[in-house]
Design a protein around this nucleic acid. Structure first.
Length: 208
DNA sequence: TATGCGATATTCT
DNA sequence: GAATATCGCATAG
């Protein structure tokens, strides 16, 4: 039997304070499931509920911070609650939430969102793909939310245009699995997702 | 549904 | 040169 899926209510959005974010990277990855990302752009407000994340903690060879600070990954070291955005594969931006204390590199990759508001704007950015494919996958997520290097290093807690918010509704059951698209440290189960949610990326066995 | 492949640009060896 | 925290399209079952 397929698990039924509930859409989060459109209540008032409450900005998350930095002190609400767990300090540990893996804990933060789990915590962010069910929370909301908001990007206020000129045309309106883009809102998506986080349904899939991956942790890249301290000492992880697959993490960008593993080899130390470089011009590219500098934002990872800003302390928890900042945006780290980078460009890969010649085509995709990736949005991460930094997760450790200032000076230490660590982050959580946001892999998929359930679109809640500004869906028409997202469809314009993504050339009108199906609703379930709008922000399913990290590259699609960034495109739908209009994320690029402009947002790299932003403080997601400050009164800015890109921010994290709490939802009134608790998330459903949270599953975990190995991370997607890696070649190093592949065995760690540091991917988290809301089980059965149709907006989660990956093959079927990684969504159940 | 799942698998496979090419495209693409930046970073690092 | 090689690798890359991917996507979209094609094809097969």
């Amino acid at each position: 039997m397929k698990r039924s899926h509930q859409t989060a209510p459109r209540g008032r959005l409450r900005r998350l304070r930095r002190t609400e974010l767990p300090v540990d990277t893996v804990e933060l990855a789990r915590y962010l499931i069910g929370q909301v990302v908001v990007h206020d752009v000129a045309e309106g407000r883009l809102v998506g509920r986080i349904v899939e994340t991956e942790a890249y903690p301290i000492g992880d060879p697959a993490g960008h911070a593993f080899r130390g600070k470089t011009p590219r990954n500098g934002s990872l070291f800003l302390g928890r609650g900042h945006a780290y955005v980078y460009f890969v594969y010649g085509s995709s931006f990736m949005l991460n939430v930094t997760s450790e204390v200032r000076g230490v590199g660590g982050g959580v990759l946001l892999r998929a969102l359930e679109p809640l508001e500004g869906i028409d704007l997202m469809q314009r950015s993504r050339a009108a793909t199906r609703l379930t494919d709008l922000a399913r996958g990290p590259g699609r997520l960034a495109e739908a939310m209009q994320i690029d290097l402009t947002q790299d290093g932003l403080d997601l807690r400050a009164a800015g245009l890109l921010w994290l918010a709490a939802t009134a509704q608790n998330p459903g059951a949270i599953g975990n699995s190995v991370r997607i698209g890696l070649t190093r440290n592949v065995d760690r189960r540091w991917r988290f997702y809301e089980r059965g949610n149709p907006y989660v990326s990956g093959p079927k066995r990684l969504r159940e």
